[in-house]
């Protein structure tokens, strides 16, 4: 009988975030007064927020508000024109401590298992440990039977589950999810949300970009509302979603906000 995702066990210890003793810590991860311009447009305009360890934070806001840019900054992919991004006392992220899952998963031209193996190899997992880790990640994402399938032949939901499992290869402490369920059907959305819940229960911190107020309500304990390159409201998720105080969040949640 096929096992349904919600019957699956909790995250086994060897897939949980690794408590690396790196001397400088990771928390809080924060963006301080960041600005970024491109093509004569100001994309980020004094963006500041901090993420302490633990929990799920939803980052919401209209298209073009700068949410994906904020995520890329926290992953160390881009630097602000002015201001700073900090990981604890560090000015670069510790390798493997932060993982980013894209809205459209970037899948290598390899099998499902091959994608996970690759991430494990880059994370520096010793060869003899990889098989067990790979099996654990495939089971976590419910992809055991698709292990040998070319990753690019997976359905949208399967592909995103693989991207999420693969992101755990390095046992990251901060997981950045950029609209992970955009364009997925309700069952696939439920599977991803379930996976995210188990990842958080395993001890990881999640920053989730989403347009889905229901998803933010189901997963997040804190919500940040972003508009025109800065945070305009930072509140407990339930409160912000039920009774937003900033005019921008009020308009957005009522379905009438443009950048």
């Amino acid at each position: 009988m096929e096992e349904r995702p919600d019957d699956r066990p909790d995250l086994p210890p060897h897939l949980r975030p690794e408590a690396r003793e790196d001397g400088r810590g990771l928390w809080p991860v924060r963006i301080e007064d960041a600005t970024l311009s491109a093509g004569g447009r100001r994309l980020l305009d004094g963006l500041s927020f901090a993420l302490p360890a633990g929990g799920v934070t939803a980052l919401m806001g209209p298209n073009g508000a700068g949410k994906s840019l904020a995520l890329r900054m926290l992953a160390g992919l881009i630097r602000p024109d002015s201001g700073a991004v900090r990981w604890g006392a560090g000015e670069t992220p510790i390798k493997g401590a932060v993982a980013l899952v894209f809205q459209r998963p970037v899948l290598l031209r390899r099998s499902t298992a091959g994608n996970i193996d690759h991430a494990l190899a880059i994370a520096g997992v010793p060869r003899r440990e990889r098989a067990a880790r790979r099996a654990g990640l495939l089971a976590l994402a419910g992809l055991e039977r698709l292990a040998d399938r070319p990753a690019r032949a997976l359905s949208g939901g399967e592909a995103q589950r693989l991207a999420l499992a693969r992101a755990l290869a390095a046992r990251p402490r901060l997981l950045l999810l950029d609209e992970p369920t955009a364009s997925l059907d309700p069952a696939a959305v439920a599977a991803i949300e379930d996976l995210a819940r188990r990842i958080v229960a395993g001890g990881a911190t999640v920053l989730l970009v989403t347009h889905d107020a229901g998803q933010a309500r189901r997963l997040a304990d804190r919500a940040l509302f972003m508009h025109a390159g800065r945070i305009v409201e930072d509140a407990p998720a339930a409160r912000l979603l039920a009774a937003p105080r900033s005019p921008q969040a009020q308009a957005y949640l009522a379905g009438r906000l443009l950048v």
Binding site: R72, A75, G76, K95, L108, R109, H118, A121
Partner: peptide, 24 residues
């Protein structure tokens, strides 16, 4: 062009990046 951000987010170094691209 397709892999760049993913590989950088993973923290792949130059050799790992070229190895990945050549194999794929």
């Amino acid at each position: 062009a397709e892999y760049d951000e993913y590989l950088r987010a993973l923290g792949a170094d130059r050799v790992e990046t070229i190895g990945t691209l050549l194999w794929d």
